[in-house]
Nucleic acid binder design. Sequence first.
RNA 1: CGGGGCAUGGCGCAGUCUGGUAGCGCAUCUGGUUUGGGACCAGAGGGUCGCAGGUUCGAAUCCUGCUGCCCCGACCA
Length: 569
Amino acid sequence: MRVSQFPLSTLRETPSDAEVVSHQLMLRAGLIKQLASGLYTWMPLGLKVLRKVEQIVREEMDASGALELLMPAVQPAELWQESGRWEKYGPELLRLNDRHQRPFCFGPTHEEVITDIARAELRSYKQLPVNYYQIQTKFRDEIRPRFGVMRAREFVMKDAYSFSIDEAGLQKTFDAMHRAYCNVFDRLGLQYRPVDADGGSIGGSQSTEFHVLADSGEDAIAWCPESNYAANTEMAEALAPAGDRAAPNEDMRLVDTPDTKTIAALVEKHGLDITKTVKTLIVDADESVEGGLIALMVRGDHELNAIKAEKLDGVSAPLTMASDERVRAAVGAGFGSLGPVNLPMPIIIDRTVAVMSDFGAGANQDDKHHFGINWERDLPLPTVADIRNVVPGDPSPDGKGTLEIVRGIEVGHIFQLGTLYSEALRCAVLDENGKNSVLHMGCYGIGVSRVVAAAIEQNNDDRGIIWTDALAPFDVALCPINMHKSERLKAEAEAMHDRLQAEGFNVLFDDRNMRPGAMFSDMELIGIPHRVVISDRGLEEGTFEYKSRTGESAEHHPLDALENVLRGD
RNA sequence: CGGGGCAUGGCGCAGUCUGGUAGCGCAUCUGGUUUGGGACCAGAGGGUCGCAGGUUCGAAUCCUGCUGCCCCGACCA
């Protein structure tokens, strides 16, 4: 491909509304162009990359035995009413009417449609298992689209849906998808982690997210280098610290602590070690608790985990912090002076808190704290549970090594749905005994367009994008120096371009009459992995210059070694 | 949806406070000189200053309303 036939639209300056590096580089390299909030055109160069991702995903899905189909993007409301999601999905669902005022939506996902197909198509257990997938544009009316195609409203997704006769069958397909996803991200050359996730609102027993590692990622992942355990921080279990609680060393005493409303102030003004402080959070309780309030306590430097907390007996879900007035009415003191001693409500403490001794906490009187508190001496040990987020250095829940916290971009998610949709839409087949059996479903997503942004987020430098070979829109940038002054060089460049193309290299031949600096800058910005420079001087010596996008400096090779050098021999 | 910011040629910005001929850099086009890390000279094209209303002899600038976009919070591929 000649640049004269494939115009680049690179920008020297960064558009001002792009915040993250992948968005900035995608705009500067001319991969995408924004139409409106969360809506982007994939320009020719960007589309080449998007198609590469699609192709790898397609090949691995096919290899796993999944069947590609293509469902309509626009879906009738009746199906969504049947599953109950027309009401549940909320404003993220783009709803529209046709000319007869019949309601439709633009599909944010396709469980309803595929289940409708499956219930018509599948009659017998002998047809199972089956796994359908498609690569298609989705629309989710996000509250706040941001970071370019990283969180767009319209985006390209690979979504797959499997149907199995029972749980064991579902587990098999789920495992096969897990392997297929690893193959995809391996081939893309990305650093990633499969991560245990919360089944969340969709339900289902098992759920794994695939995260591309990047410091700018929106999700925090707990992972253990020793065992490769990885989980969303919200999911990772915080184990009890090793060892028993130390014996009391101090007497409990009431201390005046004016203007000390936070843990930070307590540490600063009164010299307490933060690991000797306890934070008290009061939340709404469920009906089982008299008074309607319940206290949750974590160590001063730890954070409450809302997902863990709202699953506990006595805590109302969703987790709601109690109002200042209610707390004051019940306790007689406000936020900042709360603690376990004489607290008139049920208490649940974190496992770490349970092994603390000689600690400080609010005294449930304004401007006073208790120091030197000890469980089972000053007050009974309350209910103990895991209610905090893990922090770096925590023991890994699988018992091997310690956790680190890394950041990631969620690019894939596989779920076991079970019979959630198949029951609602009455999707069943006859089993071996001739009985109706509701199918077990799984669903498996890859954010294809997000993968492109995530790859850039993970691989870039101050000159621009660095594509892996699998993703690069072109393999080789062919850059002749002062070609328009030399017929000989021009002929050689043309010949080299044609020859490399014929040998299967995807070459971007810069036939613009540009100065070398500008040419190199463009090729580096758009991230072409291999650069070949030829000049009259080189031709005299029978050499060309090669530099990889990541290489330190250029190397000179004999002209006849070109293919070997590009193949990495 | 709450909080903050921005809107002037394709991109980045100045001009707005204090009303008076729309400007700069990049990019684009023409001609010339150049050519190993974003060249230089000369010339040219391109903007109803987000939209609507108002104040005024006169509005990018002041007033009112609206719209769009971006950033910070809970959700998701």
